[in-house]
Amino acid sequence: MNLKKVLPLKHILLSILSSALLLSVLGLLMQVKTNLYKNVGDIFLNLNMQTATANAVTSVVTFFRGIDTVGEVTVLFLATSGIALMLSDTQRTCEKVVKQESFILNVGSRLLLSVIVLFGVYIIIHGHLSPGGGFQGGVVIATAFLLLFLANPNMSLSHSILTLGESLSGVAYVLVALIGLFKMNILLGNFLPHPIGEIGELVSGGIIPVIYILVGIKVGSEMSVIVEYFSKEDYYKEVCDA
C-alpha cells in the first residue's frame, strides 16, 4: 500500500492550492457588510403593484428586465444550434432498422405524456400567480418527450413544427416589445389593460402572461430538440453496429 500511488503528489499540491485560495477568498468576503444591496429590489417591489402581477419575480423577469430575457433566449438558441451541428447525422450511410419496442412501455409512456404536458402548461400559464413560469414549464414539457424517447426509440419529432413554433414565438416576443415601444414610448411597455384590482386572477397583468407563454413555447421546443438529439445519438450508434 503505497501512499504515493493512492494520492499522487500533484493532487496534494493542488488541494493545498485550493485551500489557500479558499482561505484568501473567505478572508475577503467576511469583511463585506452583506445587506447593502437591497435598494434596487425595494424600488422594484414598490413599483410592482402597478403591474398587477402577484409574483414579483415574474414581473422582474418579463417586464423590468425584459431585455435580459431576450438575450438569454438568444443564448439558448445558439447553444441548441451548436448541439444540432455537433450531433446531426448527415453523413451516416447505414440504413434505419426498426427496433423492437415494448408494448406496455409504449402505451404507458403515451398515457403519462398527456399528464406531464398538462402539468407543464399549467405551470406556464400560472406563472404570474404562483411559483413557476415559462422556463420551468418548458423544461417540464421537455422531460415528457424524454420519457417518450426512452420508451420508444423509433419515435421522432416533427422538426418543421418545432422550428415553426420556436421562430414564431421569438418573432412574436420582439413584436410585443415593439408595439409597447410605439404605444407607450418604452420598450416592452404594458399596452394591454391591467387594472390593479384584478391582482391574483388568471387574466391579469396585461402583457406579462403573454410574454411568459411565448418564452414557454420557445424553451420547450429548444429543450425537446436537445433531448431528442441526445437520445437519438445512441439509437443510431446501435443500429450502425448491428
Partner: peptide, 10 residues
C-alpha cells in the same frame, strides 16, 4: 429581493 432570483432563474 426579487432581482437575484430572476437572474439565477434564467
Amino acid at each position: 429581493d426579487p432581482v437575484p432570483q430572476a437572474m439565477i432563474l434564467t
